[in-house]
Each structure stands twice: as C-alpha cells, then as structure tokens.
Design a protein around this nucleic acid. Structure first.
Lengths: 236, 236
DNA sequence: CGAGATTTTTTTGTATACAAGTTGTATTTT
DNA sequence: AAAATACAACTTGTATACAAAAAAATCTCG
C-alpha cells in the first residue's frame, strides 16, 4: 500500500546492518536502546524486536539484563571463517549455477557493475557493501534454505574482514582487488552458462585470493609462512 | 540467582521447540499469541520476542500483520535438505573429531545412552528428541560459529522428517533404526580417537541411511564439495 | 586514603492500554 | 442469487507505565 516512509522498523534494521557491515559499529560495541529509540522515532518494543531478529542473523549478541552488542570477531573466528567459507560458498555457487533465474542474473550483473564503480572511485565502505551485495545475490540464486543461514552469517564477517584487510596499501593488494573483480565476472559467466563445476571451482579460487590478501596484511613482509593454514594441495 | 522457576520465557521457548520438533505443532500451524500468553502466564511482549528468536533459528515464519506460523516443509525443502545435510554434517563431525573436549564426549555418550533407551521403550517423539540431542552435541563439539546456523536449521527438519518417516512399521525399518544406533556408536569412537577422516565418512554413511529410509522420494546426490583445508591439526 | 557496603541512578524486562490492520459476516444493490 | 460494500469482531503492532536488575555514585569505617 503506502510504504512512502518504508516503516521505521525496516529503516532501523537496514541502518544497523549497514553500520555493522562497514564497521561503523564495531564488534563488541554496545547498543543503547533509549538512544536509538528516539533517534529513529520508535518505541522500545519494536526496537527490541529488531534486536532479536538481528541477533538471530548473527549481527548482534544478546545477553540477559545487559545491552545488545555487535557480535564479536576474534582470531579464532577468523580461522573458523576460512575453514567454512570455501565449502559453503562452493556449494552456494554450484546451486546458483543450476537454479539462477534470468532476473537474478540481471541483478548479479548490476551488483557487479556497482562493485566495479566502487573499486575505482568508492570508499572502503562502498567496496565492502557492493561486494556484499554481489555475494548476497548468489545466495538468493542458490535458493537453499538450509545453506543460507550459514552463508549469510559468513557474509557478515566477510564484509567486516574486508573492511579491515582490503584497504589497498600496496600495489600488489590493489591488483588483488581487480583480480577479485575479474573473478566476479568469471562467476557470472559460469552461472550464465549453467556450469556448476566451474562455478564451484571459481568459489574456491575466490576464497584463496581472500586468504592471500589477508595473509599479506597480517604478515608485513618477508615471512613467507601462511597464517596457521597449510598450503592447499588438492584437485582443482 | 534464583532460577527455581527457570524463567517462563525459557520454558515457553523450550516448549515450542519441542512441540515443533515432534510435530505436535505441525508445519504451517498458526500460533495464537493471546492463547499462549495466558497459558504460560506471560504478557504478549516477551512472548513476541520468543517468536522472533525462534523465527531466526528457523522454527517459525513471521509475516507482517499475520499470525506466526510453524515453518513449512515442502517437497522442495526435502530435496534441499538432503542436498545440504551430508556436506554440512560431514564438516561438523570432522571438526568435532578435532575439537571435542572430554566433557563433550561424555555428553555425547550420555545422549547416545538415552537414544538407545528410547529405541527400545520410547515413543517416536522420544526417539526423535533423543536423536536430536545426540546430533546437537556433535554441533557443540565442532564449535564453528559459521557452520552451526545451517547445522541447527538442518537438525530441526531432521527431527521433523524423522517423526514422519522413521516410524518403524516394517522389520526392515526397525533394523535401520538399530543400524543408526550402531553408527552413533561408531561416531563416538571416531571422535574419541580424533579420527577426523573416519568421522566425516561416518557422517556420509549416516545420511545415506536416512535417505534410503525415505526411499519413496527421488533423492539427489549429495554435494561433494570438500572442506577448504585438508588435514586439520590444531590445539584445542 | 581505600576497601567495602549502601544508596541513587540508569538500564533492561514485562504488563497493559490503545491504535492499526485483518477477517468474517450481514446487508444492500443489481 | 451473486457481487459489492459496510460493519463488527478479532488479531497484530506500538507506546507507555511500571517493576526488576545492574551500574554508578556516595557514604562508612578501618
């Protein structure tokens, strides 16, 4: 009917998501109910419902009788992240190649277009959000309700890790970013060709690139030891 | 402090979960706020918060201005289920073998003990809940926050599918149930031996058994996407 | 001063009243 | 009799008031 104002609740939810993904709200930050309440013109009741929902999606942690907090990221979770991401994302892309509709493929191309624009002229936040949107669309394409909860949880920290580590400070890191963009193009092509095997392989490549980029950031220079994760020796 | 009455909210949440897992509340059933509200002596505010949380975990679906519903299960979701379950559960068990603490191993043995008891003298509901508890412990053991959301979502429908299809009406189905119990024992042994490869293999066997039990449906082959990092060897 | 207890203040949790939306039914109109 | 409309009953959404818990500040006594 009339969504001119789009429901304050939705507005709040989107605002919080965006703030968390871009690290404007950092892991561990407290959220003040009263403050947000009058900032968004909502009473505490619907606001707390938004908190619950975001907690369910992995954006927030709720503790009894204590304020809601932005969910934490530790080095343990970083390891868990790269353990789970290639597998889940491989499965998602594989299913995406099988199930994607034409409309969704258009959405994906649009997302990639925006990502490229952000690469050239955008801020780190813009890049992270555009990249997030790209992967989000691949999740929609897969359409598997059992994989999406983990996938969406991964995307949250993918964006946050990206904000931390994907600030191109060297020429090599910049090259990695444009390589990521090329991989996106390849992913679109694989999906359009309904090539599920290729799509799954590209997912793996894409995560290896991410891992390298982070390794580069964490390990300043000569130390050529990958962080805690042994080199992959496995069939393509 | 005093949890003698365990908080009505928790009580409600556990009651709803149990009812949904055992199909006492069936997929698509409407939940009446007013009715539950006075049945559990809670006002609608905390009750609605429980709804949000359960929706986030996949037990319920919420629609704007309409009553909360028990999440649906369609033939599509059944297919998606068997596509995702072996992969996710394989990863969970593999990580469980690496990370399980001694306390958790004791918990798992206790859960298996209860499962065996339910097999011999329990109802279908008891079996489903005991089996759910067993798998739930394996999830705790894995300790990977990125895999758990999907795993827990799978466990919900695992229990519901079990309630539907695992009613031993023939000798063969009964034999399958006791085979499932044997597999549980083997899983415990693999975890105790820290044998991640064996654990992952057992996960696959376990799901193949489930798939066979539901032989009347055409089940797709499982996704065979390997986990990113081959041999895990890390401290607890 | 300073550790610990006590009070004040602030924040979170719950109940309830009311507003807005939805559904079902009866009545009107054709 | 069927379709459309209006109205009534009911359900969901939000605001607000109050209760309970935690945090902060103050006071007490060594």
């Amino acid at each position: 009917m009339k969504d001119e104002a789009k429901s304050r609740k939705t507005e709040l939810r989107e605002h919080l998501k965006m703030s968390i993904l871009t690290l404007r709200l950092r892991p561990g930050d407290d959220l003040d109910e009263a403050h947000l309440s009058d900032e968004f013109g909502l009473s505490r009741t619907p606001l707390r419902e938004v908190f619950r929902q975001l907690a369910g999606e992995g954006y927030l942690d709720l503790r009894k009788n204590r304020s809601a907090r932005v969910s934490e990221m530790s080095y343990t979770t970083l390891r868990d992240f790269f353990l789970a991401a290639p597998m889940v994302y491989g499965a998602i892309l594989r299913l995406a190649a099988v199930n994607a509709t034409n409309v969704q493929i258009s959405d994906l191309k649009a997302a990639q277009h925006a990502f490229k624009a952000a690469l050239h002229s955008g801020s780190a936040e813009d890049r992270a959000l555009a990249n997030n949107r790209f992967h989000d669309v691949t999740g929609e394409m897969s359409g598997n309700v059992y994989l999406l909860p983990s996938f969406n949880r991964l995307l949250i920290d993918h964006a946050r890790i990206g904000m931390t580590f994907y600030r191109p400070q060297t020429v090599e890191m910049s090259e990695n970013l444009s390589l990521a963009s090329q991989q996106h193009d390849a992913i679109i092509a694989a999906i359009e060709a309904r090539d599920e095997v290729e799509a799954a392989k590209l997912a793996e490549d894409h995560w290896n690139l991410s891992r390298d980029q982070i390794g580069m950031f964490v390990m300043p220079d000569a130390l050529d030891v990958p962080m805690g994760i042994p080199p992959l020796s496995k069939p393509a």
